[in-house]
């Protein structure tokens, strides 16, 4: 399968890329790793007239702890998080998710920025970013603006990134006290999209009371979903079995899965309930 014809540019600065975007308009598409876009173009689900490859733009591939944030450049590859020991220590959730995204070859090229900018509720990083309360950095010709993850996903394949803008980075707050996080998805085979996936992040005070909770769900809603009621059930409580059970129950009630080849709606709700329970337990273990 070969994509429909298109023109191609590989600008060497961000400004050049933004000017190209402005000149070409909505027929242009940003190419990062290409591992979501190119398959769609081969199937002719996407037929952009012009690809702007930003892989030659310097300074977008960083993964750094800076002050009280983990900063991830838009062109950092999935493998960069997977291979970073420091990321694994603070955010083992990124090692959980990396292992479940496609396969090693795809992770060598697929980018974190692309995973978010694609705006696909079936992608795994969005739920993780929701759980971790990420801020997304979006750059336009007028400068950089920052959008909270809750205002980032608009709808089916639609995000806060406007036609003349580029997602340039992701900032994740690093908590100071006790915290833990975990992700898992149920998949039929390696490389499959999630039947359902759950990302959990919890923060605890010295007595073990939950002070903050983030829960993101994969592929059970038209957009990546925050399980708000589940989070509220955890915050201010000791995370005993009853509390965890009710948080998991809320997640299964509040998601909106559709029946498809991966399972019926009811099955997916059960998957979400079980995974929410397991991931809260795992995040708690890691917070000890």
């Amino acid at each position: 399968m070969i994509p429909a014809s298109f023109d191609y540019s590989a600008p060497s600065t961000l400004k050049e890329a933004l000017n190209l975007l402005k000149d070409i308009g909505d027929e242009a598409k940003i190419l990062a790793g290409g591992h979501s876009l190119i398959p769609m173009m081969k199937l002719r689900f996407a037929e952009p007239e012009h690809l702007i490859d930003i892989s030659n733009v310097p300074g977008l591939s960083y993964v750094n702890f800076e002050g009280d944030h983990l900063k991830i450049g838009a062109m950092a590859r999935e493998v960069d998080l997977e291979d970073s020991k420091e990321v694994g220590e603070k955010f083992p959730i990124f090692h959980d998710v990396a292992k479940l995204i496609a396969d090693p070859q795809v992770r060598n090229f697929g980018t974190i920025g692309g995973n978010l900018a694609h705006g696909d509720a079936a992608n795994d990083q969005p739920a993780v970013m929701i759980a971790l309360d990420a801020q997304v950095e979006i750059t336009g010709l007028d400068g950089v603006r920052t959008v909270g993850i809750d205002d980032f996903f608009y709808g089916f394949y639609a995000t806060a990134v406007q036609e003349d803008e580029i997602l340039t980075g992701i900032n994740i707050p690093v908590p100071t006290g006790r915290f833990g996080n975990a992700y898992h998805k149920s998949e039929r085979k390696v490389g499959d999209y999630a039947t359902g996936g759950v990302a959990v992040h919890v923060e605890l005070d010295a007595e073990g009371t939950c002070t903050k909770a983030g829960i993101g769900l994969t592929n059970v809603n038209p957009t990546p979903l925050r399980a708000s009621r589940s989070e509220e059930a955890l915050v201010g409580a000791k995370l005993d079995d009853t509390t965890i059970e009710s948080a998991a129950q809320y997640a299964s009630e509040d998601c909106n899965p559709s029946s498809d080849l991966r399972g019926s709606e009811d099955y997916k709700r059960r998957i979400i309930k079980v995974l929410t329970k397991r991931m809260i337990h795992k995040a708690l273990e890691r917070a000890q």
Binding site: Y8, G34, P39, D53, P104, Q105, N108, F109, G191
Partner: peptide, 28 residues
Amino acid sequence: DTSSCGACTILIDGKSAKSCTILAIQAQ
């Protein structure tokens, strides 16, 4: 031809990649 099977795996600057999902021009 859908980046699932890995038969097209090659190395690009030492990193394994599925060459059915990469444009030749990206390998410039």
